[in-house]
Design a protein around this nucleic acid. Structure first.
Length: 269
DNA sequence: ATATCCACCTGGCGGC
DNA sequence: TGCCGCCAGGTGGATA
């Protein structure tokens, strides 16, 4: 999936097609993704779209009475299509609109989710999330405070949704490289100044990735089917064993929390 | 509370 | 060609 930039790119892509439209019905061909698709979603008919927003990696489509929540998991993908486009393999859910178009969710691995949040309530999955990375609520002192009570590797803390949302494996690797911090460094050894650098780098990289349409590795594409172009900016992710772009020594690759982790031992400390 | 490990699922790749 | 093991943008949940 989609890390935060890819989800945001999806939101930007689908919003103009959903705004001021009415959802005629929802077609569910695969009733269980990561969790069962709730009946409130399945039974939705003739519901005007009130807003389209994003919290962490969740997309929220607001209608009277509540919001449809979409999560893309590892392989989820959203496309706007003509209503008569024949569904293919892994095309699990269609949100059918009133102008002969639909929003189609394709998700090979089915780690994604379609959920429901009633108006005035917060879905349990959304209640314990940390701040959005691109807002002022994510700042050096806030990150430093979390780091001080954690002895685990900084990369794991950076990817912890209670600390900050939306930083997945690609951008965690990239951010730590650019900040010059070893992914394995115990979080409680980071100084406030290092946290400040890391925060700025995370914001800059995520913003840049959004501008470039996200990172396409295999199955991600924008709502219009175009790939993202951030892949060519990746400095360490997927480059284990290759030369560091800065010092030309060989990038190391290890597992950290079962996730592939790439870094330069000379440029990161 | 924190840390570790597993689970969910499909498909692509390299090795034999 | 085929089979096998390993890997992949995530993250909730069980366990100690």
């Amino acid at each position: 999936m989609p890390e935060l930039p890819e989800v945001e790119v999806s939101r930007l892509g689908i919003t103009p097609h959903l705004s001021n439209r009415t959802i005629r019905r929802i077609d569910v061909r695969q009733p269980i993704l990561r969790w069962p698709v709730p009946s409130e979603v399945i039974q939705l008919t003739n519901a005007p779209v009130l807003s389209v927003s994003r919290r962490a990696k969740y997309l929220l489509i607001e209608v009277p009475g509540g919001s449809i929540i979409l999560h893309l998991g590892m392989s989820g993908n959203l496309k706007i299509l003509s209503a008569d486009t024949t569904p293919g393999k892994h095309d699990h859910v269609d949100i059918v609109l009133d102008n002969h178009t639909l929003l189609r969710l394709n998700d090979t691995r089915r780690f994604g989710a379609v959920l429901w949040q009633a108006s005035g309530t917060a879905h349990p999955l959304l209640t314990t999330l940390g701040p959005e990375p691109l807002t002022p609520e994510f700042h050096a002192a806030q990150l430093h405070q979390h780091c001080q009570k954690r002895s685990s590797a900084i990369k794991l803390v950076l990817m912890d949704n209670h600390v900050v949302v939306g930083v997945g494996n690609i951008y965690a690797n990239e951010s730590l490289f650019k900040a010059g911090i070893l992914p394995t460094k115990p979080a409680n050894q980071l100084t406030l100044a290092q946290c400040a650098v890391l925060v700025e780098v995370v914001k800059q990289i995520l913003a840049q990735a959004i501008t470039q349409g996200g990172t396409t590795l295999k199955d991600f594409s924008q709502a219009d089917g175009k790939p993202g172009y951030f892949k060519q900016e990746l400095l360490v992710y997927g480059r284990g064993g290759q030369a560091c772009v800065s010092c030309h020594s060989m990038l190391e690759e290890i597992r950290l929390g079962q996730r592939s982790t790439v870094f330069c031992r000379h440029c990161q400390a």
